[in-house]
Design a protein around this nucleic acid. Sequence first.
DNA 1: CATCCGTTTCAGAAATTTCTGAAATGGCCG
DNA 2: CGGCCATTTCAGAAATTTCTGAAACGGATG
Lengths: 186, 186
Amino acid sequence: MADMKLTPLQQDFVLHFGEMGSRWGINRTVGQIYALLFLSEQPLNAEQITEGLSISRSNTSMGLKELQSWELVRLRHKQGDRRDYFTTPDDLWEIVRTLVAQRRKREIDPTLTKLRELELRGPQGDAYAEARIAELRELIEMMTAFHDEMNRLETERLVQLMTMGRKLGGLLDKTPKLNPFRRKTQ
Amino acid sequence: MADMKLTPLQQDFVLHFGEMGSRWGINRTVGQIYALLFLSEQPLNAEQITEGLSISRSNTSMGLKELQSWELVRLRHKQGDRRDYFTTPDDLWEIVRTLVAQRRKREIDPTLTKLRELELRGPQGDAYAEARIAELRELIEMMTAFHDEMNRLETERLVQLMTMGRKLGGLLDKTPKLNPFRRKTQ
DNA sequence: CATCCGTTTCAGAAATTTCTGAAATGGCCG
DNA sequence: CGGCCATTTCAGAAATTTCTGAAACGGATG
């Protein structure tokens, strides 16, 4: 663990996460740091990450700060060593929960706030736009409420729900019911 | 509809979508074009969008191309007018389905492919990393299978499921069952 | 309080992404 | 075919984001 040469497997995984970073809304370095920590059994310190990824020390520092702001990374300490060591949670479901929660916070919540703010202005004479905005707000509220529910489930129940497969549809009452989100025209 | 002055409501909504664009993995212009189309009862042509958003004609063209590649926008034609007109679907659920499908295609599927590729190499002597990769692949497979299931449901059933609230947990069998994704240690 | 060691900040450099105007393309019509 | 109109392409300009090295910071220790 001293010289931090990556195995070909780590190398490949890390590079992939780096490339995907931009699609995931993080930058390459942040993706690579996360990937490296994800595959490391032992916590790593900033120096090891810097060396492993051949990036600058300050870049590592910024990347770690970013990952901490996402709460995707844990800080650890070792006896008699004042450097910071980092890991990712062992439990993948916990990672997913964090990821979803953070994306919601950054990608959804600000828009929900904005939509509510727009509605507070009351009718402005553009009935279509106003209806469209209200409809979007309702949809987002429904989805976030559902997310809250799923989040409340213990992991075990969640896995149970997700692995139900075809049985899912069967659980639901098939009585015809009006769908508030379907429009009359197209 | 001729001179495309935006109302304050449209203006504000469009600017918000522009700002959020970067968080959503699209650029400002693309976000703005989508927002404008979303609030427009009538389909708009490229010229109207260009004018409404005060951007260049070529930027509009590129933005529309991008939105078409996401399948988030529909092409329409008017009698005796050979310009292309664009709209967003009336049905918000359809928009959400498209969005989720596209994000999965761009953000998840390539990684799933990569993970499988890494596993095909067989044991390389880094048991921890190999286990971690396998675990991640299994998790992603479970989630995509679940997505496929949800996607199969008609909108009405989906809404029914999402609005179940607390009853969700109650539906599930509470018999203790081993969770294949929880690790022994932390 | 001076030094050591690890971390963070920050201004500018480098890289990347976005945007524009001009030119090219493509199809329709007379 | 030649002109017209809408759209796309593309090379360079502009804007934004990422990355680096150097300096500042902070806190433990002798």
